[in-house]
Design a protein around this nucleic acid. Structure first.
Lengths: 245, 245
DNA sequence: TTTAAATTGTCACAAATGTTACACTTAAAA
DNA sequence: TTTTAAGTGTAACATTTGTGACAATTTAAA
C-alpha cells in the first residue's frame, strides 16, 4: 500500500495558495455550494485558500487520530473509512462518494481528530480547505453557513438513527425495522434488499447464519416470505408488533 | 403530567421580542457565549429575538418529532430526553444539565425534528432563540460561530464514540472498554463506577444480572477485583486483550 | 430512629446467538 | 466456454445472554 505524503505538509510547501479555475457546473453540484451564485463562488475561491488535490487508488487521504485541520470535499471518485484496532485488524466503517465532504462533523470541537483512516477506493479528486478558511468562508456568506449547518445536521441525524437502530436487541427486531423501512421507501409489500445478506449481517453486527435462521423463522411464523434478496411482507401488523417484543 | 403550551405559540403572541437584561457572569458561563466580551453579548441580545422561559418540574420543553425551530439553552436545572415507542413505553435516552444547549445537532438539516421528548427534571430556566436568530447570530460574530461549531462537534464526537462502543459485541468487551476508559481518566488502577450497575446495564443495553455475572467471571479470571462500585484492575494487559476476542 | 425504596449479588433455567461445517446457486473472471 | 469466487441456505452444537426470583445490603425518606 502506497502511503501518501500527509496533506498538511504538502500545502505548507506552497508559497501562495492556489486560485482554482473551475467549472461552475461542477462546483454547484457540491452540497456545500448549493444555491450559491456563480459570482459568490468565484469570490470565495479568490479570497480563500482552497486547493485541488488528487489521490490515486489506495492512497491515504487521512490517518486515524490525525488532527482534523482541513475540510476535504470529494469532487470525483470514492473513499472508504476504516478503523484500526490494536490487534492490527482493519474494520471498514463506511464508504463516501463524490460530491460529499468527509469528516465534516469532526472538523471542529475539542478532540477534532479523524475517527477513521481514509483510503481512496479509486482515483479521486478533492478540494481541500484549511480549517481557518472554512471558518472565514462561513462568516462570509449566510447561504454557505446554512448549507454547512444543514449538511452537519444530516450527518448527525444519520448517526443518531443508526444508534437508535443499534438499540434494538434481537435480530428479529432489527430485521423488522429494516424491512419496514425499505417497504416505506418502495411503497410496496415486496422489497429487495439493498445489500447482500453478508453485508446486512455485518451492518447488524450479527453472524450471517444467525441472520438467515431468523429470516427462516419469520417465514415459518407467517410474517414474511423470502427468497434470495426478495422479501414479501405477509402480515404487516404482526411485523410491526415484533419490534416491541 | 402538565402539558406546557408549545413554546412556538407562546412567543408568537408577543408584539415585540424581549430584551433580556442579564448578568454577564451568568451568560459568560454558557458554552455558546464563551470568550465573548460583555459588549458583544449585549449587542447580540439587543439585536436578536432571545427570550427567557421558565418551566416547572415535569413540564415538556419539546415533543418527540416536533419541528426543531429554536435553540433551547438551559440556564439552570436539568431535563431528560425520552423516546416514546408505539407501544407507549417511555425510554430514557439522556439527561442534560445547565448550562448546556439541547438538540443543537438537530436544529438544522432536512429532517430537523426533536429525536426525543424533553421533560424538565426540576424547575428550569431556559434561553430560547428562534432558528432564524441563531443563523443571524452566527453570522455576526466569529467567536460565537466557532463556539457553536465546537459544541456541535463535541456532541457529534460523543455520538460517534457511543456508536463505536455499541459495536463491541460481548458484555465483557464493553466492560473492558468502559473500565479502561475510566482508568485513563483517573490515572489509577482502582476506579469507581460513575453510574449504578442498573444504569450501566441499561447503557450497555444488557440485563443487570448478565452484567453482574460477567463482572464475577472477570474477577474469577483474575482480570479485576470488584466490590460494589469499586473495581480494581489486576491484569491490565489481559484486560486490553479481552477487547479483541 | 424507623421505614421504605433502591442497589447489589446470586441462582436455575430458557432463549437467543455464535461457530463451524457443508452443499448448493449465482455472478464474475479467465 | 470453463473456472473461480462470492453469495445463499441449512444443520448440530457451544456459548452468551435474558428472565424471574430471592436475599442481603445500602441509601434515602419519614
Amino acid at each position: 500500500m502506497v502511503i501518501n505524503v500527509p496533506v498538511s505538509v504538502k500545502y505548507r510547501q506552497l508559497a501562495h495558495w492556489h486560485i482554482i479555475i473551475m467549472d461552475y457546473t461542477v462546483l454547484s453540484k457540491i452540497p456545500l455550494f448549493n444555491s450559491l451564485k456563480e459570482n459568490e463562488i468565484i469570490r470565495i475561491f479568490s479570497e480563500l485558500k482552497i486547493i485541488e488535490t488528487k489521490f490515486r487508488k489506495d492512497e491515504l487521504l487521512a490517518l486515524q487520530d490525525e488532527l482534523c485541520n482541513r475540510l476535504i470535499i470529494l469532487l470525483s471518485g470514492s473513499v472508504k473509512g476504516e478503523m484500526i484496532d490494536p490487534s492490527g485488524r482493519l474494520v471498514k466503517v463506511e464508504d463516501i462518494y463524490a460530491p460529499n465532504p468527509l469528516a465534516i462533523l469532526f472538523l471542529f470541537g475539542r478532540n477534532n481528530r479523524f475517527p477513521v483512516q481514509v483510503t481512496a477506493c479509486e482515483d479521486v479528486t478533492t478540494l481541500i480547505i484549511p480549517k481557518q478558511s472554512v471558518l472565514r468562508m462561513l462568516g462570509m456568506n449566510e447561504t454557505l453557513l446554512r448549507n454547512y449547518l444543514d449538511i452537519s445536521a444530516d450527518f448527525a441525524t444519520r448517526l443518531s438513527q443508526k444508534l437508535h437502530f443499534m438499540s434494538f436487541r434481537t435480530i428479529r427486531q432489527k430485521l423488522a425495522v429494516y424491512i419496514l423501512d425499505l417497504s416505506k421507501i418502495s411503497q410496496y409489500n415486496v422489497i429487495e434488499l439493498d445489500k447482500t445478506k453478508s453485508a446486512l449481517a455485518e451492518y447488524f453486527g450479527v453472524s450471517r447464519p444467525s441472520l438467515e435462521r431468523e429470516l427462516t423463522k419469520m417465514q415459518q411464523d407467517g410474517l414474511i416470505t423470502t427468497n434470495k434478496k426478495k422479501i414479501e411482507i405477509k402480515n404487516k401488523k404482526e411485523l410491526i408488533r415484533q419490534i416491541y417484543q
